[in-house]
């Protein structure tokens, strides 16, 4: 990444750095590359929003970091640096322990986030119980503390309740509490609000934002909804068809998005200042992994695409110094 402008203090070292990540897999007997050359950094106290359409590889990226890639998918290139240490070089058991102690994860579906057959009190401290001997009373105290932390009302009374006694938003809070049980430095949230209504979405985001500040958490927030993260994300990484198309500081990104795809995404969202303005959509569908075009992968749908776009993969183009786009013909002025 290019040097930050002088206005910002020197950045803290990243908790997690992903460099040139490539994930290969098989689909219907075909070898496919689902994520290619992806790099990003998670810093303490900051939220990185990983944005992209369904199937662009963002969830597989999270799965790769968490060591939860499905059968048949492998990291074939790149590095994952956890506090500067390349964890892909570690023996599997050691990597598993490092992941367990330094990362927590929240997933998409609040209906399946919790085991319906266990009272939530015992589930919330599952990670802690897997790591250490924890007696009944200390476990209950810890569970109550965690539930209070995420804002579950009357936590003490609800420890013995089962997940079906909770609403979707409350379950997602419990899932967040569960992810924080071992006090991880990194929280990976894979579309945690997609299945929730708008008000609950906002509440969950505010909760994540508070936890991130209070605990100096490095948060990776995966979503397909740019407007959702506009208020809280510190950094943005936009993915399209397995590759990064634009990345950088959220403020710079939102004030002047460089990549036509980023603009298109923003153009599909109603603007609060001009709600009657006509929304634009993007023609066509993202390509499937086995038919990625040779040049820029967005070229077939891009209004600015020229001949070079169809043949040459685009190089990184620096914007105003704090963000960059991978594009042959980036926008240069504000929206």
């Amino acid at each position: 990444m290019p040097a930050s402008p002088a206005a910002r203090p020197a950045p803290t070292p990243p908790r997690l750095a992903v460099e040139g990540l490539r994930i290969d897999g098989r689909q219907q007997g075909r070898a496919i590359t689902v994520v290619d050359g992806l790099s990003f950094e998670l810093r303490p106290g900051r939220m990185l929003a990983l944005v992209g359409e369904s199937g662009c590889g963002k969830s597989l990226t999270a799965a790769a970091i968490l060591g939860l890639l499905p059968w048949g998918f492998r990291i074939t290139r790149g590095h994952v640096l956890l506090d500067g240490e390349d964890v892909l070089q570690l023996p599997p058991g050691a990597w598993r322990r490092r992941r367990a102690e330094s990362m927590g994860a929240v997933f998409q579906n609040p209906l399946t986030a919790l085991n319906p057959t266990l009272p939530i009190g015992s589930q919330v401290v599952e990670a802690a119980r897997l790591a250490e001997q924890l007696g009944r009373e200390p476990a209950r105290a810890r569970a109550q503390e965690l539930l209070e932390l995420v804002g579950v009302p009357e936590a003490a009374r609800r420890l013995d309740d089962y997940p079906h006694h909770f609403s979707g938003g409350m379950r997602q809070r419990v899932a967040i509490a569960m992810a924080l049980a071992r006090n991880p430095a990194i929280l990976v949230a894979d579309e945690p609000t997609t299945a929730l209504d708008l008000i609950t979405q906002a509440q969950i985001l505010r909760l994540l934002n508070r936890l991130q500040r209070e605990r100096d958490l490095a948060v990776l927030f995966i979503t397909h909804d740019l407007s959702l993260v506009a208020e809280y994300a510190d950094d943005i990484l936009v993915m399209y068809a397995g590759r990064a198309v634009e990345r950088g500081e959220a403020r710079a990104f939102f004030s002047a998005p460089l990549h036509p795809y980023s603009r298109a995404l923003l153009g599909a969202v109603p603007h609060p200042a001009a709600p009657e303005e006509r929304l634009t959509d993007i023609e066509g569908l993202p390509p499937a992994p086995h038919e990625y075009p040779p040049g820029c992968r967005f070229a077939p749908r891009c209004p600015r695409a020229g001949t070079v776009c169809r043949h040459e993969p685009p190089p990184p183009r620096v914007g105003d110094g704090s963000h960059e786009a991978f594009c042959h013909h980036p926008y240069t002025e504000g929206p």
């Binding site: 939860l68 322990r97 367990a100 579906n109 919790l114 790591a131």
Partner: peptide
């Protein structure tokens, strides 16, 4: 299921 994935993530 997510809770099984979460438990795997916890090691």
């Amino acid at each position: 299921r997510d809770y099984v994935l979460a438990a795997r993530q916890f090691g």
